Amino acid sequence: MKTQAFVPLVTHPEANSDAFGAHATAAAAILGAGIHALAVNASIPKVSNALSRMLLDTPELIRQAETASRERGNQLLAILKEKAAATGVDFTGEAVSAPLPLMTEVAADRARYYDLSLVGWEAGNSTAQATAEAVVFGSGRPTILLPELVDISSFNHIAIAWDGTRVAARAVADAQSLLKHADRVSVLTVIDEKPLKEKAPEERLASALRQRGVDAEAVTITGQDCPIAQTLQQTAIERGCQLLVMGGYGHSRLRDFVLGGATQGVLSSLLMPVLLSH
């Protein structure tokens, strides 16, 4: 059975960049996966009152916004289809319209039907960030975040952010197929960010991975008052890692997710491809 990757495309109010098409197909090729892309276009409620027509011509503004959203969705689908054909990646795509408050929820719901999601991330793009958060916490599937300014060439050296928790273990399990094909794995544990349940958990995981034939090395990190997400990503980058695997920490409070520090940091400032699993 072939792996299928879900690729949500955000179109409004801030759309994915053209670069995402190349990044998503490159990642899919590395994973040996086909792509199913979904352009989520905006459906904006019509406003019908005399004042809105006289002062702003609101119905026309709504029509223009919806048209721009559909056109951008079609452009992104066309770019993905072209890049997929060039890299030999199987591709299917479709477009749906959704009300503004439900666009990210539609993406998360559709992601449940696939093995994993590939989500584009651009600095300052709050729509892409909200979509990533919704897919990570709402799909029940692992999500690989792909930053706009980082080219994807391979996942031969993978870093794991490890603290021995259930969420971290879930992330490692979701990344098994990647780990077993990697040339090297670095297990990263930050020792001064929060109390750990056991001493040297990174050594225990590295040893367990080596028993399975993975070339794994334990790496102990001190945060030195640096944000945890930046510490993990910078350490991974300095070691030559191309992917960081980590658990997505968060809990619901009145239906809003309160994110853990590392998760929030990654979603806010993504420096490299990151596999998040919740």
Score class of each variant (00 low, 15 high):
S277L: 05
I158A: 06
L259N: 06
A218H: 11
L188S: 05
L276I: 13
T220P: 00
V7G: 04
P142F: 10
P195W: 03
R72M: 10
I160A: 09
G213V: 10
Q264Y: 14
F137H: 04
G261P: 00
T220G: 06
Q4K: 13
D183G: 14
V214L: 03
L275M: 15
G240V: 03
V258Q: 10
M54L: 15
R141Q: 07
N74I: 12
H181G: 15
A236G: 01
T25C: 02
R212F: 01
R170P: 12
G240Q: 06
I191P: 00
G120S: 06
S269N: 11
M1Y: 11
A26P: 00
E122V: 09
L259I: 10
E198C: 11
L116E: 05
E71A: 10
A128T: 04
P101K: 05
W162H: 08
A24D: 08
L267A: 05
A216M: 06
N41Q: 07
G260N: 04
L38G: 02
T143W: 01
K2D: 14
H157C: 06
E60S: 15
N16W: 09
G140C: 07
M246H: 05
P142L: 10
Q211Y: 12
A98S: 13
T220I: 08
R112S: 10
A33Y: 00
L9K: 02
A22W: 08
A208Q: 13
L9W: 00
Q4H: 14
R253G: 07
Q64C: 12
E105D: 13
A68G: 13
V135M: 04
L118S: 04
G261S: 10
R255I: 12
S277N: 05
G223D: 14
A85E: 03
G124D: 07
R255E: 11
P273W: 05
V219Q: 08
L244Q: 04
T231S: 13
T11Y: 06
A262Y: 08
I158M: 02
N41C: 11
E105F: 12
Q233I: 10
G32N: 08
I35M: 04
V136K: 03
V135F: 01
I228K: 03
K46V: 13
I160M: 09
N41Y: 00
Y249E: 15
V89F: 01
T235L: 05
C226W: 00
A65Q: 15
G88R: 00
P101I: 11
A42R: 04
L271C: 09
N156H: 14
G34K: 01
A128L: 09
N16E: 15
L196P: 15
T11M: 03
E60A: 15
A134C: 07
K180A: 09
G213N: 06
S139F: 01
R110S: 13
E238W: 00
L275Q: 14
V245C: 07
T3R: 15
V96R: 02
A218K: 14
P147E: 01
A134F: 07
L145A: 08
E105M: 11
W162D: 08
D225P: 08
G120W: 01
G140Y: 10
D90A: 01
E71S: 07
